[in-house]
Each structure stands twice: as C-alpha cells, then as structure tokens.
Nucleic acid binder design. Structure first.
Length: 415
RNA sequence: CGGGCUGUAGUGUAAUGGUAGCAUAAACGCUUUGGGAGCGUUUGGCCCGAGUUCGAAUCUCGGCAGCCCGACCA
C-alpha cells in the first residue's frame, strides 16, 4: 500500500471527547472514526486489523470443528418470548423496532436463532456433536458506552455454539474451546486469564471469562500468579491476599478486560425451544449446548491498551495492519527509485508493506507517523543508508537499529 | 437511568458581557530534509433554540451531544 494513497492521515492531537487510550491512539493513527458514543467506523487500517483478528479466530474455530454460518440480525419476538428473554436479561439490552406492525429485535446474541435452526437439522445422536459459529456485528443498548472500543453499543462478535448428546461430551468440548481461545488470544498478543464468572441469567453453571490484565479494564479479578486460579470479583469467594485454594500462593487483585467468555448452557434453550434428538436407546432427549464468545473489536482495543508506548501503538505481529513500514526518508530520485524497488521485492516475497512514499513530509514526521501507526518492522531508505548499499531495520518495540544490505533484505524476511 | 464536567475553524486551545485570537491541519509560492521544518499569502469557527441586556462565545432556561463516576452490562 502506498501511504500517499492511503485514505487516512494521522493527527497530532487526539479529539477532546475521547479519554480512553485505545480510542485516542486508534483515532489519531486513523484506524477508526467515532460516530457516536460506543459506535465506531473502521477505516482501511482498522479494518485490516479487525480482519486479521477475525481470520485468526476463523482458523482456530475451524480447527476445533466449528463451521461458519451467518445468522440474521433481526430477531423475531415470539422466539424470545419462548425463552423468556424478550424483556428480561439480555433482552432488556436489545434494540427493538417495528417491522410491518410487529416488533422485532436486533441481535445482541443468538442462542434463540441458532437453537431454532438446529432443530431443523439435528434429530439423531448420530448428528452430534456439532458446532457452528458466526462473526457479526452485535447491537446492545448499553446504558453507558465507554472506554473506546472496549464497550460499544455496536460491536463485532464471534459467537460459537456447540451441541451435544450428553453433558460429558459437552465438557470435553468445553475444555477444547478453552485451549483454542487461549491460542486465539495468544496469537492476538494477549495473555488471558481463565476466570470463573457469573452466569448472568444465561445459565446456572459456572461460566468462564478470558480476562486480560489492564488498568483500563472494567472488571476486577482475583487470581493466582501460579496460573491455576482466578475468580471475577462479582462472584468471588476469595479476596486479595488470600491463599490460592489450589496451590496456596497469594492471590492478587487486578483490573482486567473481558475479551471472551464461555458458557455451559445445558438444556435451557433446547428445552425452551424444543430442540430434541433421539438417543441410541430410542428416547427423545434435549440437546446439551454451550456458547462461546470472543469480541474481535474488543480484542483490537485491548491489544492497543496492552501494546503501546508514549509514541503510539505497537501492534502484535499477527494482527498488525502491515508487517513492514517502508520509509523513503528523502525525496531525491535515487532514494525514490531504490525504495520502490525494495517495495516491489518485498511485495513479491509476500510481505505486507505500507510504503511511505509521501513527498513534502519531513523525516521527523515520517518517523512519528510510523511510531504512531505501530507496524512491527520499520525499514528506512535514505542518503545515509544508500551510501552503504543498505537499509535501516528497526523493530517497533526495540530501540536498536541495524543496517542490512539491500540484497539481504528479502532473505531476512523470508525466514 | 442518577450525579459531575464539557460543547469555540477539520483537530487542539484562548478570549468571562464590548473588534472571536493562537497553534496545527488544508491550499499556493519560495526555501528546507535523520525525530512532527522556516518565511510569506489564503481558506475556514462560537452545538441548537428561547430569554436577560444597548450589546451574549461569555449570564439564565430548555434541548441535543460527548466524557467521567455510579447503577447496569452473554
């Protein structure tokens, strides 16, 4: 991508009406545009990041048998009345509107819809287990949107639903999802702590949240540094300073961001909506379900909260909008020509490059922009480097700069 | 939804009852080029409505919007 052609530009100042760090940096760097409280548009750079997060999720969900679907945003009222959630629980947060005189909702979550769909296709134990997921914009009437991308009224969510013939089979899958989620989040540069949470009306069993320690978080968790125990303050039977019930180490209290959660749904929805299957013994039984959420947009915000410095964002490699930020530092024809060659070579090698080919920008401004945008590798081509047939290579998260021969650049990035 | 704070060029800010100013971005020209460059010229603004007043960005009331705290939140 030629930076001179990029739709967005950076700004020196963050807008006054944003206090949250993730929103400030993402807006300054041109990743998102704020439309209203809790509602953001994704601009080219932001969409690249969002898609990378979504693609990591897709890949990992498919590895655990998830099949991607896309469900309707509109939610019929009668379905939600059957599960008694139209005006209770999450239903209170549902945007509702009239459609030809009847009321419909905009999906804040999809248990109702997915359960009704599965009724049409799953009828025997031979059909189980199955799991489906979707990545979609969710709408929620949050009373108070806040913290930039962390709590929006319109946000991106991946919701996975699994269907099982028994509680045991469900539990096996639940553990598989836990592993998978840790992998997804790890690839997104986040270290999450599996935390016991409250059912919040979804279920009576203990669900789990994936919490990332960060001052900007709105949750508080107690956790053990040994990594074997964590409880959300909402449901905690422990407090800071207590001994870990498992390994006796001291428990710590921290603010954290909930980037994912997983719920045992049991047979709550299948019973309410009549989703039964015929078991080996010929008996009709309700399908056991689980649901599992991850918020790509929230992950993006959390990644910025965790990975930044005073100069800007430091994207974790896998979700960076580009791998390399190539900077043509000066405007003389030789530098332009050489930069262009390097750009073409890198592209041919399959590397994603943002090429700062802009004229009329001082070196200082180009460096400052590169730091703000936060692409993992920076390559500088200048009069100085060309004298040595080289370019400068610097990682966004390191201070050291090394000279690399232009010829060796391709090999460097291949490995 | 309760409480608090705030709305001034695209963005960030100043003017506290009396000529809307500064920075930055944008446009043009010349110079400049290793950490947000210089000079000159130009464009562009008081959230909306009502009231008080000779006169309102400024005071009052209402609305709308944003942020923060709380409540709420798979």
């Amino acid at each position: 991508m030629l930076q001179s052609q990029l739709f967005t530009e950076t700004t020196k100042e963050a807008p006054r009406d944003e206090k949250s760090l993730n929103a400030k940096l993402l807006i300054r760097a041109g990743f998102v545009h704020k439309e209203m409280a809790g509602v953001y548009s994704y601009l080219p750079l932001g969409l690249l990041v969002l898609r990378k997060i979504q693609d990591i999720i897709r890949e990992e969900m498919e590895k655990i048998g998830g099949q991607e679907i896309l469900m309707s945003v509109f939610q019929p009222k009668d379905l939600w009345l059957k599960t008694d959630r139209w005006s209770k629980g999450i239903g209170k947060d549902m945007f509702k509107c009239k459609l030809n005189g009847s009321e419909v909702g905009l999906g804040p979550t999809h248990e109702e819809i997915v359960t009704r769909i599965l009724k049409s296709y799953l009828s025997s134990y031979r059909d189980l287990p199955k799991s489906v997921f979707q990545i979609q914009t969710k709408f929620r009437k949050e009373l108070r949107a806040k913290s930039g991308l962390l709590r929006g009224r319109e946000f991106d969510m991946k919701d996975l639903y699994s269907f099982h013939s028994s509680e045991e089979d469900f539990e096996k899958y639940y553990k598989i999802v836990i592993k998978s989620y840790h992998k997804v989040l790890g690839r997104c540069g986040l270290r999450a702590i599996l935390t016991e949470a409250s059912g919040k009306g979804f279920t009576s069993s203990t669900p789990h949240e994936f919490q990332v320690i960060a001052p900007a978080g709105e949750d508080t968790i107690f956790y053990c540094l040994g990594g074997d125990f964590s409880q959300n303050k909402e449901v905690a039977k422990v407090k800071a300073g207590d001994k870990c019930p498992i390994c006796q180490k001291t428990l710590i209290e921290e603010k954290s961001i909930e980037v994912g959660n997983i719920f045992p749904l049991g047979i709550k929805y299948s019973e309410a909506l009549g989703a039964y299957f015929t078991d080996k013994d010929g008996k009709k039984k309700p399908i056991t379900m689980g649901c599992y959420g991850l918020g790509p947009s929230r992950i993006m915000g959390a990644a910025v909260e965790i990975h930044h410095d005073s100069k800007g964002i430091i994207w974790p490699g896998e979700i960076a909008p580009f791998q390399v930020h190539l900077i043509q530092l000066q405007e003389n024809p030789e530098i332009k020509k050489k930069s262009r060659e390097i750009y073409d070579t890198l592209l041919k090698t399959g590397i994603e490059v943002l090429y700062d080919d802009r004229d009329g920008k001082s070196p200082g401004e180009k460096f400052a922009d590169a730091d703000l945008i936060g692409i993992p590798w920076r390559i500088v081509v200048s009069e100085r480097t060309l004298e040595k047939d080289s370019v400068e290579l610097k990682r966004r998260d390191k201070e050291e700069i090394k000279l690399v021969k232009t010829k060796e650049l391709q090999t460097f990035f291949k490995s």
